[in-house]
Design a protein around this nucleic acid. Structure first.
Lengths: 191, 191
DNA sequence: CGGCTAACGCAATATCTTTGCTTTAACCGG
DNA sequence: CCGGTTAAAGCAAAGATATTGCGTTAGCCG
């Protein structure tokens, strides 16, 4: 038997967490982020506001918690048979998500309610994990591949920077592909 | 969001804006961000809370306004005589600023209270402006130089991404220099 | 100098946040 | 399976913050 964490993971706590998350997602969709309040979320979730305050502290932290949850990849990246195809597929999909208004909002919410950096760190770890899967497949095929840091720095970072700080260009796909081309054909460690 | 379109730019409005900004900076220093509230800021600034609410909307938007103000470069980057020296100097200084806890907080505050993206856009424009100054100097010297987009994508973006999403590495300076080296010697448009 | 009006001050009201205490129910050993 | 223990939720009152209508002030402009 594995030792149990101090917090109670199952039962009521899990149900409350679930219903509060669902309430946030529904209300975000229905009424937009600006009209969200803790009492409103609590009412929809069928709990009292003090429960939300005690567990999440503030609305921002709750929104960060919900946002990072939705940034978690549902499945490993698809295997298309080559490093370039895998990276392009993942990068264009990532670019579309982050470039969309909803994706931008999720990134901002993740950062805004994250006092200790754990949620944003998790967010980066998700991307790093997906990339490492792709790169280890490439290694198994014997392909010459960059390391994960290079992909994070020169593919992920530019996409995220654009999403957060600049008006995203119309052609997110093409931009993502050009970043992949750069990291694959101009940045791979020289022989 | 920045103060609503100031129909009346001078006089009392400007004084209020100034005193509120000063109050925010002082209280940030004295008491930390978590204990900041609009009534507190208003009292320190010598205005009523409703004035702050009417001009800035929320505390977050006020903090964003103050943060982006402090991200604005005070002077053009120094001219050290070569592209590489100029870029390294600017990038290491930028890296130190963004890697510091205060710098991270400013980036987060800028994003958090910026519903329409205007403040974060300004923030990117500041960096772009400094870089363009450096690059046009290089062009005047006849140096072979990357374009500003490449520097934003492959130097600025990785630095910002690390500051926001990952635990910054101990050696921000060396990391910044390696990014500059990459963009200068491996990414410059091939002849 | 005097009218016009955006912006501020004030104060009442509405809403949200905090907190002490009580109650519930998940977990665990017997 | 059953009761003891306690983390977590509920409740409600007190406290703080946010909103808003209305009167007043002071830039701006003719």
């Amino acid at each position: 038997m594995s030792p149990r964490p101090a917090v109670r993971p199952g039962g009521r706590s899990a149900r409350v967490r679930q219903s509060v998350h669902t309430a946030v997602r529904e209300l975000l969709q229905e009424r937009g982020r600006d009209s969200l309040t803790v009492p409103l979320v609590a009412a929809r979730a069928g709990v009292t506001p003090s429960t939300v305050y005690r567990r999440w502290g503030t609305l921002r932290e709750l929104l960060s918690d919900v946002a990072v949850e939705r940034l978690r990849p549902g499945s490993p990246p698809e295997d298309l048979g080559s490093l370039r195809a895998d990276l392009e597929d993942w990068a264009t999909s990532f670019a579309q998500q982050t470039a969309s208004p909803a994706g931008q909002a999720r990134l901002r919410d993740t950062l805004a309610g994250d006092p200790d950096g754990s949620n944003s760190g998790r967010c980066a770890a998700y991307a790093a994990g997906q990339i490492e899967t792709i790169l280890s497949r490439a290694a198994a095929r014997g392909e010459h591949a960059p390391d994960a840091e290079a992909v994070l720095d020169h593919v992920v970072a530019p996409l995220v920077y654009r999403a957060l700080f600049r008006q995203e260009p119309p052609d997110a796909d093409g931009y993502a592909r050009s970043l992949v081309a750069t990291v694959l054909y101009r940045l791979i460690p020289l022989p």
